[in-house]
Design a protein around this nucleic acid. Structure first.
Lengths: 344, 344
DNA sequence: TGCATTTGTGTAAGCGCTTACAGCAGGCCA
DNA sequence: TGGCCTGCTGTAAGCGCTTACACAAATGCA
């Protein structure tokens, strides 16, 4: 069997600008100008070109355009996982705005991946800039990306040179949440999460509630932010001596695990133990009791990230920005009984 | 201010193969061969090249490679939305396998978008093949994509020429579900969903339960597959005369809405009315009562899609395949009381 | 009418890479 | 020693597009 000729392998070409030019009886430069609206083109010429384009059903090759233009017109996004609605919502907000700005979105999930660095570098070669969650990418690599000229926006991490950061407010809401719980008369608390890991948001939440509750709260490491880990840690915690009256969870999924744990042990929530989450994912509202939590503007975070990235890429702005978006305490029934219980 | 020179605009270049070649004292062809392992290269020469690559921190430009190779090494995916875990899970399964196969994933959400066709075409210009959910993309455009040589895999739609399809089993599970419900002694049923829309899976589910229950079940259109729509439709249904004893919902989110509706009306589930969902999303397990539902192998669907696409792109296979993956009935408590209730 | 613009178009040089082809040693065998 | 491989490398022609530059024609203005 004969090997494929070069031409045959090329599925990308379809009809090229040369064919359009020939058909319209002009040069490829004119076709390009007519199509992009750069430089002057006589009305009659443009007409011919457009007609040829129409007849041949021509679409400029993205690769050719990108190579010549020196830009990809694409954004990347690096997230650990899409489990749970948090990243998903941010992603949607991001994609929507990126698309409006004429940029595609290339995704990369790092969960369970070896050689993340290579994957990130590959991604960097496909995009003009990227959004990175927290500390998903190691700092040295971040520095290298900056050096390479890849524009970066981070969500949920501490500011760093050469990149934008974006996060939602944590300390204030943590404080409000703690106050609400003490308002219920509770005195012993536990924080379920992993305040010492890299997910900076969680660290801030922990610091926030601790600042408000002082020695009345202890942290319990869940290792991961999943229902299962929340469940296991909560079972251990609720079985042990000195059971806390309220469990503040690092996020909703851990809280859902805690809810299951209480049920497993025959404990009433919030009668025996109160539970709160963070993020306000869909399941939080449907859990019984419904979960008191803190709502993050997840979609908004994504949308802002896309705009910020666009500013950096187009060069409209070159000084890094560090933005913090407000959050909102959502009181439901898992934290205690309220006089007039509002349906959320 | 002087306009940027061409060179300055080009942020993509960084260090090129020419610089590596010069430094190593060889031609760019040799550098390419040494790096890709195509063609013979003397050990000593390869050494020099690798060292130069190392010193200059060279990474081949994706654009250059793609243009020359005639392929993008990227897959697309088109989904209506990421709301709810269904699409997310499929996406993750897809991305993971695509990444293993050395392909990036470019996403496109069509929810609320005008000019979807243009977006899809743009996407088509960036990838070697794409995964499309259901009827997200109109058939004429699909035909055009096939003609352009874009490899296609569909999830959850009827087979069509020139593309793979992949779906999970619906009719059988619908039947099993219906039998389980009649086993509870119920006689009047309602199907909550929108069996006449384009989401083919749902149509099959409806046909499946109707085949099993005959005239004992009526369909109620929810318009959208959301908690809100499920809630509204269920309220109307449960308030009206001839309230059904069991509500079979097209998916879990609609079912969650039905659960909320029952609660709103002071009805006990499953005492007064039974509710079932479909998909087994996370919230299904955490709802109270926990939702009886049908589990789809969502990640598996995504993974299979990625592999199928790879086969089509690499040309390993050129006859379309139409695969159906098995589903699993998950009995929890929302459908009725069971003797020995197992915790799921 | 003469000259300076302006307008419209083509030519060609890239963008960074892959690879067909040619060429040049050196080794081997008769 | 001549011929023939074989192994290695370079040259150059693309891939499809954008755009600087050159140039001719049309226009404006005095």
């Amino acid at each position: 069997m004969k090997a494929l000729t070069r031409r045959e392998r090329h599925r990308l070409m379809d009809v090229t600008i040369y064919e359009v030019a020939k058909r319209a009886g002009v040069s490829i430069a004119t076709v390009s100008r007519a199509l992009r609206g750069t430089g002057p083109v006589a009305a009659r010429t443009r007409e011919k070109v457009l007609q040829a384009v129409e007849e041949l059903n021509f679409t400029p090759s993205r690769l050719g355009v990108s190579l010549a233009e020196g830009r990809h017109a694409a954004n990347g996004i690096v997230f650990p996982d899409l489990a749970g609605p948090y990243y998903t919502e941010v992603l949607l907000g991001y994609e929507e705005v990126a698309s409006e700005l004429g940029r595609s979105v290339v995704i990369l999930s790092t969960k369970g991946r070896t050689r993340v660095n290579d994957l990130v570098k590959d991604l960097a070669g496909r995009v003009d800039g990227m959004l990175i969650f927290g500390h998903t990418v190691p700092d040295p690599l971040v520095a290298e990306l900056v050096r390479l000229g890849v524009r970066l926006v981070f969500i949920s991490r501490d500011p760093l040179p050469g990149a934008d950061t974006l996060r939602s407010e944590n300390a204030g809401s943590a404080h409000a949440l703690a106050r609400h719980l003490t308002g219920h008369g509770y005195e012993r608390f536990a924080f379920l999460g992993a305040p010492l890991t890299s997910r900076d948001d969680v660290d801030e939440r922990w610091q926030g509630v601790r600042a408000a509750l002082g020695g009345a709260i202890d942290a319990v490491d869940t290792r991961h932010y999943t229902v299962e880990c929340g469940f296991e840690a909560a079972v251990k915690l609720l079985k042990g001596r000195g059971r806390p009256r309220a469990i503040v969870c690092s996020d909703d999924e851990v809280a859902l695990g805690a809810l299951l744990a209480a049920e497993e042990l025959g404990l009433d929530v919030p009668g025996d133990v109160a539970v709160t989450g963070w993020d306000d994912i869909m399941a939080a509202r449907h859990a019984r009791p419904a979960l008191t939590t803190v709502r993050q503007p997840m979609r908004e975070l994504g949308a802002r990230a896309a705009r910020a990235l666009d500013e950096l890429i187009t060069g409209v702005r070159d000084t890094p920005s560090n933005l913090i978006l407000p959050t909102e305490l959502v009181i439901r029934s898992s934290c205690g009984h309220h006089p007039q219980e509002a349906r959320t």
